[in-house]
Design a protein around this nucleic acid. Structure first.
Lengths: 147, 147
DNA sequence: TATCTTGTGATTAATTTTGATAAAAATGCT
DNA sequence: AGCATTTTTATCAAAATTAATCACAAGATA
């Protein structure tokens, strides 16, 4: 598909605020609202748009800590972990990666005690390394059109 | 603020699909749409809701690679980097962390050449370590109410 | 020329917003 | 505790806005 200038303009609006109305987007990008609606639907169908998420502040809802945890899985333990990780409420992002470690996760935790018990759960799957997040430098930045 | 059962129900809807109408959310959680509207506005004002983002597929728009890059900043180079990183289109997430490395970033890249030139830019700020993302195991999972 | 795509404008249905009112919860006083 | 007052928050209804759908026109494609 051709993801043209107009679609990028629409995507820029939607990435910045997914709850904008089609009419408002249309006003901003200079096209009618049915056109916006149709283009959004098509981008959804094509998988360009994967979804619309609300960003909830972990701090405001009681998660005092954020951490990056990497895991070097034991022999035969990677696959079981890939299944198990989906059930952890604490894990907001998890990637399989190349290199020494197999997994990197972003997790939210209530407090030190919660962190301790969470890390304890990982022991059976491999060696984990925890790095506490001090601050968000860049958060959920939009994806830009490439030249 | 009391983030009660009803607000969590609303947040669950919004995290799953930020573009649901207030009326539809109201139907699902059993209140009128003005009630939903008012509660959402209050959660926005209080910073519980940080925003509404559209998730764009990096692959579908031409970014073939995703990577996790950590940076161990040179003496005096951390602060300049924290400013510079905001200007990088490739960086979709960036955290300052504890431990050996100071920074962990999630980046999207067009190809190997692009990766090479991006990593080259980092050399002046510190030692970087790059891990290619093989797959998303868990992506942007919603934040749950804690018991 | 014929066909396919995509935007516009119009119509109708649905939604949001606003203000008025009522119910519920919290607060204060005896 | 018991009761009245205040505050908060929900509902309802009307008006304004928006979304979905349609026919049709303008370009692009074959």
């Amino acid at each position: 598909m051709d993801i043209d200038k107009l679609n990028w303009k629409i995507l820029r609006c939607l990435q910045e605020n997914a709850r904008l109305s089609n009419a408002e987007i249309g006003r901003r990008v200079g096209v009618s609202s049915p056109a916006v609606s149709e283009r959004i639907k098509k981008m959804e169908d094509l998988g360009i748009i994967e979804g619309y998420k609300t960003i909830v502040s972990p701090l405001e809802v009681g998660y005092q800590l954020k951490a990056i945890i990497t895991l070097r899985a034991f022999m035969g333990k990677l696959k079981p972990f890939l299944e198990k990780v989906k059930t952890y409420d604490e894990v907001v992002n998890c990637y399989r990666i190349t290199g020494d470690e197999n997994i990197v996760m972003e997790v939210v935790l209530k407090n030190q005690k919660h962190m301790e018990s969470f890390i304890d759960q990982l022991i059976v799957y491999g060696e984990s390394k925890t790095q506490i997040v001090l601050s968000d430098v860049v958060k959920q930045k939009e994806i830009k059109s490439l030249k």
